[in-house]
């Protein structure tokens, strides 16, 4: 099912949680809403679910406005951040809940309910937990039961609020992979909220980056990482060097950093900011180089070093171990730096 969000705003007291947001989510897509806390991502998710109402704008499911449709009639599966399992019901009853509360005419028979719940338990691979109480489950198990409960009503949209937020790193990675597979299997339009950029980039077909109630950029993960369109997106996704530069005839100029590979930009002459990722900087030892190596750490997947430019600014650089071993660097060496890829943004107050 397609979701269209048109000019949606929401205000809590004096706080503008969403400022006229427009977004279209395609049928069968897996979309991440990514942003720091307070960016409005959870508010947007709750508006889609109908757990809250927009002050302005409209949300359409397959072209039909949902303004008059309460949460219970939207056929949306919602997985809450802290799972919100019904604490006094067994796992089985939790999953069966959505079927049992249907009007008598539409309610499946007891045998059918049993069959459906067992099927869902199978899907989340927790058949043996049917008779347990939620308090007896681990975080990862609760998460999967919450998902099974949401799927029981055969939702047209699956909404997940910080689905892995409360789990430890190892379980998180495992569940992430599992959710990706599940989405491929079910192909339900899914939206999840996260503040973890790695999670968003790894899992989603498209990522919506939000900040202070606005959408900053909507793109495929690769595009987002390679071509961030705003300073916020550059900073928020991965490590980046934020460098003051001067635009002279359409070229960003930084003393001690070669920027010829970046080409020209459409900005007027004057100060601007250059954003370059540490692995997009080439480093080469040169006795008359402008950079001075201050720190080298060959621990981890890449070699990390910090280079001081003539004006005293520190630049973080990442190299592959292979490159490093060919020409090892030490603190105190002089080097030349050049940017392979980067974004230039005008300095706006």
């Amino acid at each position: 099912m397609q979701i269209e969000i048109a000019g949606v705003s929401r205000q809590f007291g004096n706080f503008l949680a969403l400022r006229s947001v427009d977004l279209t989510i395609g049928s069968g897509e897996l979309v991440a809403l990514l942003g720091p806390s307070g960016s409005g991502k959870t508010t947007l998710l709750r508006l889609i679910a109908g757990l809250d109402r927009p002050d302005a704008g409209d949300i359409r499911f397959d072209g039909v406005s949902t303004a008059q449709r309460p949460a219970g009639e939207r056929n949306v599966g919602f997985v809450f951040q802290h799972y919100a399992l019904f604490r006094h019901m067994t796992v089985f009853e939790n999953i069966a809940f959505g079927l049992r509360v249907r009007p008598r005419k539409e309610r499946p028979s007891e045998a059918e309910i049993r069959r459906r719940v067992e099927e869902l338990l199978n899907l989340v691979q927790l058949e043996w937990l049917a008779d347990r109480m939620p308090s007896q489950l681990s975080g990862g198990q609760r998460q999967r039961i919450a998902l099974a409960r949401a799927l029981a009503i055969e939702p047209r949209v699956l909404l997940l609020d910080e689905p892995f937020g409360a789990l430890d790193a190892k379980v998180r990675k495992e569940l992430r992979r599992w959710l990706r597979r599940l989405h491929e299997q079910l192909n339900t339009t899914s939206v999840f909220v996260t503040h973890d950029q790695e999670e968003a980039l790894e899992l989603a077909d498209r990522v919506v980056v939000m900040d202070r109630g606005r959408i900053e950029q909507v793109d495929k993960p690769v595009q987002l990482y390679r071509n961030p369109r705003t300073p916020f997106v550059s900073r928020f996704l991965g490590d980046v060097n934020e460098i003051d530069c001067n635009i002279i005839a359409g070229r960003p100029v930084v003393s001690g950093l070669d920027t010829t590979a970046l080409g020209t930009v459409h900005l007027p002459n004057g100060p601007a900011k250059l954003y370059v990722r540490p692995h997009d900087i080439a480093i080469s030892g040169k006795s008359d180089g402008a950079g001075l190596v201050r720190f080298v750490s060959p621990i981890g997947a890449v070699v990390r070093s910090e280079v001081e430019l003539p004006d005293g600014r520190l630049i973080e650089v990442m190299q592959l171990h292979d490159h490093f071993e060919l020409r090892p660097l030490q603190p105190g060496d002089r080097v030349a730096l050049s940017a392979r890829r980067g974004q230039v943004f005008s300095v706006t107050p």
């Binding site: 109908g50 219970g72 919602f78 919100a84 809940f97 509360v101 949401a150």
Partner: peptide, 23 residues
Amino acid sequence: TEEEAAISLGASGWQTFWRVTLP
């Protein structure tokens, strides 16, 4: 949140009260 979960699963206000809030 448990009430919200019940509502989003299609329970009416009455059902939510009897099946979730009260127990």
